[in-house]
Design a protein around this nucleic acid. Sequence first.
DNA 1: AAAGTATTTAGATGTTTATCTAAATACTAT
DNA 2: ATAGTATTTAGATAAACATCTAAATACTTT
Lengths: 95, 95
Amino acid sequence: MNEVFKALADPTRRQILDLLKNRDMTAGEIADHFHMTKPTISHHLNTLKKTELIQDEKRGQYIIYSINTTVFQDVMNWFFGVMQSNPIHKGENEK
Amino acid sequence: MNEVFKALADPTRRQILDLLKNRDMTAGEIADHFHMTKPTISHHLNTLKKTELIQDEKRGQYIIYSINTTVFQDVMNWFFGVMQSNPIHKGENEK
DNA sequence: AAAGTATTTAGATGTTTATCTAAATACTAT
DNA sequence: ATAGTATTTAGATAAACATCTAAATACTTT
């Protein structure tokens, strides 16, 4: 879970997720959207893959990346948890 | 927005938010929950404050910290955006 | 005003991380 | 098999970050 948050902390990696939400893409296509070398993007893809935020599939000489929304559920749950303050103490902010 | 994600990337800072979701706390009370020096916690509090994930209020010799859920909305919106894949292309993952 | 408590600021240090270039691997097509 | 294309691995470097100790600031109480 900590690894997921760390993965999301980088703007390039979040942009990759934004790209993949529209359609699956090869590593090269993804790299073409950035002003960075392919090895750098490959590193970011690997970071995302390790957290299972994305998955890859080899097709011929290409590797196709796609988003995996399963892990997002967990992150969302943490957010919901934080946003539901304890009602006994809620309102103290306004004092 | 990038600063918010970077702030959330540290486990100690997320734990601070977990503490503050229950009740407001002084800097000292927060620090007592961790095996770290007070300056270190102070630094984390400052990072959270800069992103407006928390706010502080001076009361006498204490400084009371509280959570600010406003910013969480923005982060949540990003997540919702990523999780709604483009329907035209959705389903290609299963191929 | 002096002493005590709460918190932050300053400065230093070791670790992690984003990025690069160069080289390696893997597949395709001639 | 050779050449070409796609992608990753390895190794290096510089910047960012978490943490510490020591010192400073600010408030309270005697």
